[in-house]
Amino acid sequence: MLKILKYSFFDLSRSLWSYVYFLFYLLLGIILLFLNNDLSNAVITLMNVIIILVPLIGTIFGVMYYYDSREFTELLLAQPIKRRTIFIGQYLGVAISLALSLILGLGIPFVAYGLFESAAIWNFFSLLVSGVFLTFIFTALAFNIALSHENKIKGFGLAILLWLFLAVVYDGIFLLILVYFQDYPLDKFALIASVLNPIDLSRILVLLKLDISALLGYTGAVFKLFFGTSQGVIISFGVLALWVVLPVYRIIRVSAKKDF
């Protein structure tokens, strides 16, 4: 597994896009911090970027890497290596390198700015944790789509649609349901619906650090009980972890049966 990981890394380290991604975050971090000079504002802007961009990049990179490395995969398949090792190794290669770009790209300017002396360190930390989770989740989802679709264009399109659905459309439907059924008790529904979508869940986890007062103040007891306690945070991270584990499990299942 480590060898496959190493070569996936090696392969990605030659791709220009990894550097573009890294530099983008580096630049974003620097601009936000040193031109804006306000940490809480920077964290809010970053959250918007992370919620939108990290899943998108994870999706695109995942699909792209899978299709681009088909030759490499075929080469590996004829070698005495387990299938699971090959696919999980490649998946981890992409996900870890993306996560590293994110952590380093944002981390360097923040550390340079003097984050460790700031109270915003936990906000920033929760931001990075959510970002890393989203990277792993969406790369895994992208691998799933690519594995099930030989046609590159179709796979790509589906992956983007999935992103669009989870990032935007889901919330639209969610809001419509809330407004339409506003006469009914909705707090449990709202809670479940927001926990089920990894983008919504990550957003709320970051918000818990930033806008907690608004969130707690304006909702019923269910929300308070859930988000106000460590139990809620544990469940939230459990669900995020599940969002990683289930697609990865499917990668293993589907790849074991697939013909090359």
Binding site: R14, S15, Q79, P80
Partner: peptide, 29 residues
């Protein structure tokens, strides 16, 4: 998968990761 240790295989169409150099590929395999 272990039985593949004792097989040498030449695929029909040579698909290789394009951005590798020849000696890198050989070293990797």
């Amino acid at each position: 998968w272990n039985y593949r240790k004792d097989i040498d295989y030449l695929p029909q169409i040579a698909h290789f990761p394009g951005n590798l150099k020849v000696n890198e590929l050989i070293r990797m395999i």
